[in-house]
Design a protein around this nucleic acid. Structure first.
Lengths: 191, 191
DNA sequence: CCTACCGATCGGTAGG
DNA sequence: CCTACCGATCGGTAGG
């Protein structure tokens, strides 16, 4: 047994039933050990939630930065920010479901960290829309509304998409979601 | 005290902390009574979840039907189906959050009922896209993907929208989401 | 509507 | 990694 295995099983069960809907006994049972043995690989149930949420939200921000830095065209920035966000919600479904469903159960300092990084992403994303409107390449009535619509469309991917389960790959899904984002933003067809 | 008051408080707390994250003691305390007194107004904690989820999913299906029946143009059908769905997630935020977050904790028969009605809505919604593509008025690579993107964009409204808290009314939000839906579907600007 | 109380289960600890 | 066990709290019942 390893800490990684415990964290991974917690991830699976938290995503499936929620943090409060999952017991340590269930995690232990799924791993074939007794509840107290879990404490050789973690410090508490809450620490599992902390680890999952903070690493995930940090990755979201880092990926946004990596995908958009050096890119100045708002159209291309929006496309890349959307693609990387949609892709993450397709390939890391469990992590994103836990962040979105159970972050409310975090305690500080994890709670504040997640909230701040989430707001950072929210503002950075919306700024792309604002810049595009200012530059005259986007056509939306409300940058706020369009930004929420695009981001949340991506977030929800984790709730229905299954890798290998359908006919679409994560790469293909994120490419198409990138196109949806440009459509919502009011950009004429680019491809 | 009334059954409606108990249900309403359960709605608020379930939406905030989740079904398993809420205790009957918290519901009772928020109402200024003791836990056992709740049983004068309900039969069990699970029955509260049942009532919330089944009535909500039924309303979703009924609203879809009322909004689209008699309408044959795919563009108008998609606009109306989206508007009514977005509107519900703006004005009934608590209900939709509970359905989307805690339906997994339902037991039969409520579990089956919710799953079936959800699938019905999913298929009916997707069929609009398919019909529009067949009629040549929509332009999407995948009706499935576009349908999910549009519906889930609406669902997420319950997670960020606040009535009266911003500058947008539910009516205005749903009108714009209707436009987003048409854009995603590849319809040229209609307004 | 209440107090008193139930068995079950929770996250977690002691000690090996 | 285990057994044995802890106090606290869970949803729910008895009885008035």
């Amino acid at each position: 047994m390893s800490s990684a295995a415990v964290l991974d099983m917690a991830l699976t069960l938290f995503a499936e039933r929620g943090y409060h809907g999952t017991t340590l006994r269930q995690i232990a049972e799924a791993l074939g050990i007794r509840t107290p043995s879990l404490y050789n690989h973690m410090t508490s149930k809450a620490s599992l939630l902390d680890a999952i949420t903070t690493s995930t939200i940090t990755a979201v921000v880092d990926e946004f930065t990596a995908a958009t830095e050096g890119v100045t065209d708002p159209v291309e920035r929006l496309r890349r920010a959307t693609e990387v966000y949609a892709f993450r919600h397709a390939v890391h479904r469990r992590e994103t479901m836990v962040v979105n469903g159970d972050a409310v159960h975090l305690e500080d300092p994890a709670r504040s960290l997640v909230r701040e990084k989430r707001r950072w992403h929210e503002r950075a994303f919306r700024q792309i829309i604002v810049d595009g409107v200012d530059a005259g390449v986007f056509d939306v009535e409300s940058a706020k509304l369009a930004s929420f619509a695009i981001r949340e469309m991506c977030v929800s991917v984790s709730r229905w998409f299954r890798v290998g389960g359908g006919d679409t790959t994560p790469e293909e899904l994120s490419r198409q979601y990138g196109e949806y984002a440009l459509r919502i933003a009011g950009v004429r067809r680019t491809a």
